[in-house]
């Protein structure tokens, strides 16, 4: 059945929105999904795109980017619980374009070519953003573990990464 493709895609849109809005109150993600589908409903290009999935994610990122610009830049919030730094906090610390590229590839599992189409950037730019996001997340967890070991007064752990 090719029916209800959008309906089945909506779960994925919601997942992506939650990860993208990791730093925002709950409810913001579903608002973004609603705006995305509404945009796709009124957009002329919706049915011209070869792939409705690419089209929907493109609309979502456009909407999220616009909302991002209206608001002050999010401060890279320290993890709520320094002992348990989680991926949401790491995502919140990323720049919007990096977070988006990373999530398209790592969460939504788009190939680079499709992810680049979604973001309307060249392939190499997309690849660079994904790599930068990964390194930044590494830095985040490294910093978090250093901070937690410092607060606990323990000597640097044997698993510390030495560059």
């Amino acid at each position: 059945m090719k029916r209800n493709i959008v309906e089945r895609l909506t779960g994925r849109l919601r997942r992506f929105a939650r990860a993208l809005h990791a730093d925002q109150p709950p409810g913001a993600a579903d608002d973004l999904v609603r705006e995305t589908i509404e945009a796709a409903l009124t957009a002329r290009d919706t049915v011209e795109r070869a792939d409705i999935r690419i089209c929907l994610f493109h609309h979502m990122i456009d909407k999220a980017r616009a909302a991002q610009k209206d608001k002050p830049a999010p401060v890279a919030a320290p993890p709520a619980d320094p002992d348990m730094p989680d991926i949401s906090a790491a995502l919140a610390g990323l720049r919007f374009e990096e977070r988006t590229a990373y999530l398209l590839v790592a969460l939504e599992e788009f190939g680079y070519a499709d992810a680049a189409t979604v973001m309307r950037v060249p392939y190499d730019v997309l690849a660079t953003r994904v790599a930068q996001a990964r390194m930044r997340i590494d830095d985040f967890f490294e910093e978090a573990s250093r901070r937690s070991s410092a607060t606990r007064g323990t000597p640097p752990g044997h698993l510390r990464i030495v560059k």
């Binding site: 209800n4 493709i5 909506t10 779960g11 919601r14 409903l41």
Partner: peptide
């Protein structure tokens, strides 16, 4: 983020269906 997939379209289902109708 897997729970979102299990939840599916949820309250957005009617809106999603109207886009399905269009596409």
């Amino acid at each position: 983020f897997a729970p979102a997939i299990r939840e599916g379209a949820g309250p957005m289902a009617p809106l999603a269906r109207s886009l399905d109708q269009k596409v």
